[in-house]
Design a protein around this nucleic acid. Structure first.
Lengths: 195, 195
DNA sequence: CCGCCGCCTTAACCTGGGTCAACCCGAGGG
DNA sequence: CCCTCGGGTTGACCCAGGTTAAGGCGGCGG
């Protein structure tokens, strides 16, 4: 077993026999990425995903108008991939970019489907992952519905303290749905007013 | 089989043997709701969900500040329930209210777990449902990130034509994340300007 | 028939955030 | 040492949407 820590993490989500994990490791491939390097770009087939072993990533979507917004940041132990597109068998509309030198463990969805038909544990794990992602998105939806940009910012740092210093400000702005200018203003406002 | 149409719908998502469906129908209970009646209110245990047989519902969340925002509308063939809370074994924070006289088919999650341990098809179906919900939420996230309120409105009616005339305007506003006043203004703006 | 109620609209005013543009500052590279 | 460059800040100006408050209007009960 090359990645016992990762195994623990997954097994906590759903029962996962060690021998099944061994099979998964057998089809996985380690990949190193430089800062700025892309794990996935728009138009690529969404036929693989990965677990972050080290580093940080941002999942970006550029709109028709050319402005880029950030769907998520992903750090150690989290999944990267164009999940929605994968489920719909569409080419990726997402760019996934390393914000720092990183290492990931890559799986082909094809290989994963093979694992799934071998043992039900994978089905259950896939379900858990889907459910977890749903919960995260719903939480975010809630934030857009009833929080101001400033409140979203505060909440963001509350919930992602481990990203401090690892993601540029402009990307935080693009995650919050505002411009970097607005974010800068909010921060200076906070610096002065509510001590 | 009391609800063959519903069976078709579900079976389209994931393979579902008719005899399993029969078992599900056996534990389901039909419920009628008047306009304004609540299927679920905040604080209720999130231990049941339902399929809409007839009518429309709105899933509301009231924020700490007391303003209510709408997570989703649900019409015939769709699921109602506090899904996120159910997954997290939390009491409901959502109100689910009939916008018209409605009929639903209610399941207890407890009964459903029994079905799941009886046959893997339910596991697969649950996964599909989770994935589907995820896709919807991600799409909505995208809309908040790079569409204006006006564009969100247009998209809303594009994607939900069957809700026309069935949901009050103020609720559409609360779904879009704006006030009813703003929505009214947007509509009159559109009436004049871009013919 | 009147009056009320629920729902929508309109207007006046305020504010947060967008846009554009100038500027600052620290890290390299020549 | 200076230049450049990437990333953050600031200011001026504008506009979408929030807030408050005043109608409009159709439906329904009395």
């Amino acid at each position: 077993m090359r990645f016992p820590k990762l195994f623990e993490r997954l097994a906590a989500l759903a029962p996962l026999p060690p021998e099944e994990w061994e099979k998964a490791e057998a089809v996985a491939r380690e990949q190193a990425l430089d800062k700025r390097e892309l794990f996935l770009r728009p138009g690529d087939p969404a036929d693989r995903f990965a677990v972050v072993l080290q580093g940080v990533f941002r999942a970006v979507r550029v709109s028709a108008r050319g402005q880029e917004s950030i769907k998520a940041f992903r750090a150690e132990g989290e999944l990267i991939g164009a999940y929605a597109e994968m489920l719909q068998h569409l080419p990726s509309m997402t760019t996934i970019e390393a914000l720092a030198p990183s290492r990931v463990l890559v799986f082909q969805t094809r290989d994963f489907q093979a694992l799934e038909s071998g043992h039900v544990c994978w089905e259950r794990l896939a379900r858990r992952v889907a459910e977890h992602h749903f919960i995260l998105k719903e939480r975010r939806e809630q934030e857009f519905l009833d929080l101001s940009a400033e409140e979203r910012l505060v909440k963001f740092w509350d919930e992602h303290p481990h990203l401090k210093g690892r993601v540029p400000q402009r990307d935080v702005a693009a995650y919050l749905g505002i411009t970097e200018v607005a974010l800068s203003r909010i921060m200076s406002r906070r610096r002065k007013r509510p001590e």
